[in-house]
Design a protein around this nucleic acid. Structure first.
Lengths: 141, 141
DNA sequence: GATAGGAATTAGACACAGTCCAGAGGTGGC
DNA sequence: GCCACCTCTGGACTGTGTCTAATTCCTATC
């Protein structure tokens, strides 16, 4: 399991180490993600950050999440066409997605062995690999 | 490789065998997908179907694509938060996604061996598994 | 051929995630 | 104190996808 900084000071250091100027809003957003260590949508982050009184704008939340993704501080998870999830866990892992509830669960990559995947085409570089297992409630098909 | 019906009669039969009433619009949409055998977005399907003269509405294209997905005639591919792709290939396979161009390429599932994936949680059924390899041009990282 | 009824289609309004932009607010260097 | 730069903000905007009420199309029955 990777480090889990909870204090705002720890978070500020972590942002700095990624070359990000740790502003109040950015620390709040990082705190929402890293203290929970859950998969959150942009809207959920916005709601958490503004729980007490609204003080962070929607644009800032979106900009900051994109900034965090670019600097690989967090990861985008694209499983639902309606909204992107943001994942504070950047260690290699995969996902189980409950298509009924929207719940997203991690699978540790260390437990999984994959053979026979092709090399990226010439001149291309692999940026990442996603594995998503979609599940729903019901009897085995 | 699965069957590739090109003629409108073949397509009508195929729709009927899935319990779908083969209307003119539905056959046109099926033709767009199956004759090309490519990954298309809803907008691309709409454009293809209305190439000569506009005669199929946007609502019909969306409704029909969802209907085809429900009856497992085609498959949804969720790789881009901005739009869903529809895949006429329903045989088990995975995808390479070029994040720069949006190009989507198939990987035959027969070539890939995966071990160590967990069982679905109790009471849950696996609906499907997606593997997406994201690539971009550039030097190896 | 006329007609009735259900299914399918249509145009347009709507919903909603995410982006853009121009102006305001902070912060540090001088 | 003043300037320059970066960040934040609200609101307008965009694009995908959905909803709805009205119309059209099919098909069966007479």
């Amino acid at each position: 399991m990777s480090q889990r900084p909870y204090s705002k000071d720890d978070l500020a250091d972590r942002l700095r180490s990624c070359g990000i100027n740790p502003t109040r809003q950015r620390i709040e957003i990082a705190h929402a993600l890293f203290s929970r260590y859950e998969h959150l949508s942009a809207d959920q982050v916005l709601a958490i950050v503004n729980q007490r009184q609204p003080e962070t704008s929607r644009a800032t939340v979106y900009n900051t999440l994109n900034l965090f993704v670019e600097t690989k501080l967090i990861r985008e998870v694209i499983v639902d066409p309606d909204r992107v999830f943001y994942d504070p866990n950047t260690a290699p892992h995969y996902h189980i997605y409950n298509v009924e509830t929207g719940e997203l669960t991690d699978i540790d990559a260390q437990d999984v062995r994959i053979e026979g995947l092709p090399e990226p085409p010439p001149g291309m570089v692999t940026e990442g690999m996603d594995i998503i297992i979609r599940v729903r409630s019901g009897r085995a098909a």
